[in-house]
């Protein structure tokens, strides 16, 4: 009898929590739309503000982009510290390529050198080129930059800056999947065991540094300083277990319609984190 009552209370509690979650995400989107409205009104009131831009060749829209680019770059510099490598972990079933591409471009614009994108089903890995195309498109839309280099795995974008403010977008983007996690550690272990089998190495020579150097080669990029996790699931979902030793995790409710301000406040939070490294 009591068990039934407990079960009923538990169900009610969880129904309420789900309702709360839905309401929060609903308000978030409302709020975002409202913010857009505010920005639109502001833009109407100050159309002349962009007049002094001297990039005649780029035209007015590109001028606005230039301004935005400079602002984002300055935002990045205003922070006490900026992560070198940011991982974007999408823990949601529905993936929106445009939103992800926006996230990547914002990260690049504030001056982050390495951005990786991960989902635990390997969807981005399978649709790598689609994501890369979307990033290029958003990069042009948001920043008005010409991309010069672009490969399937990496996207290198180097551009010469004509602006007087020093702001260059140079970033490596990498798509990661669960296969880069435990399976890559297993492959490194196999490699080491094979060299022991062939008497090239002794088992007692194996230590953290040796394994780390092999795993570093397999990923090519530094350990992530910060992982931004999007979605309601509180987990790393298999994201690079070896490399997240000192990574800070910041959760955001969803990547759908995420705004620049959301990302910037997460970066601000990261800037205030202190790492003691065991001390």
């Amino acid at each position: 009898m009591m068990a039934l009552v407990y079960d009923f209370v538990w169900r009610t509690l969880h129904a309420l929590l789900h309702l709360q979650r839905v309401l929060i995400s609903w308000f978030r989107i409302r709020l975002w739309n409202w913010r857009l409205w505010k920005q639109a009104v502001a833009a109407l009131l100050v159309p002349v503000a962009l007049g002094f831009q001297n990039h005649k060749t780029l035209g007015p829209p590109a001028g606005k982009r230039g301004l935005r680019r400079v602002r984002w770059g300055a935002d990045g510099k205003s922070l006490e510290k900026l992560p070198m490598h940011v991982g974007l972990l999408i823990a949601e079933d529905e993936l929106h390529y445009t939103d992800i591409a926006n996230l990547v471009v914002w990260c690049m614009a504030v001056g982050i050198s390495y951005v990786s994108v991960y989902d635990n089903q390997g969807i981005f890995r399978r649709n790598n080129s689609r994501l890369m195309d979307e990033i290029l498109k958003q990069q042009q839309d948001l920043l008005g930059l010409e991309s010069t280099k672009y490969s399937v795995e990496f996207l290198n974008n180097r551009n010469e800056k004509q602006d007087h403010q020093v702001m260059s977008c140079q970033a490596v983007v990498k798509v990661l999947s669960p296969d880069d996690g435990k399976p890559s550690i297993v492959r490194a272990a196999q490699e080491l065991c094979r060299s022991v089998e062939q008497k090239e190495r002794r088992s007692k020579d194996i230590d953290v540094h040796l394994l780390d150097s092999i795993l570093r080669e397999s990923v090519h990029i530094p350990d992530p300083d910060l992982v931004l996790k999007f979605g309601p699931v509180e987990s790393t979902l298999g994201f690079l277990p070896w490399h997240i030793r000192l990574t800070e995790f910041i959760s955001l409710p969803s990547h759908t319609d995420v705004s620049y301000e959301d990302i910037f406040s997460a970066l601000k939070r990261f800037a205030t984190c202190e790492q003691r490294q065991g001390k």
Partner: peptide
Amino acid sequence: RHEIANAVKEMA
């Protein structure tokens, strides 16, 4: 990391 490296060492 020490634990994982140690596991690899045991297998070796």
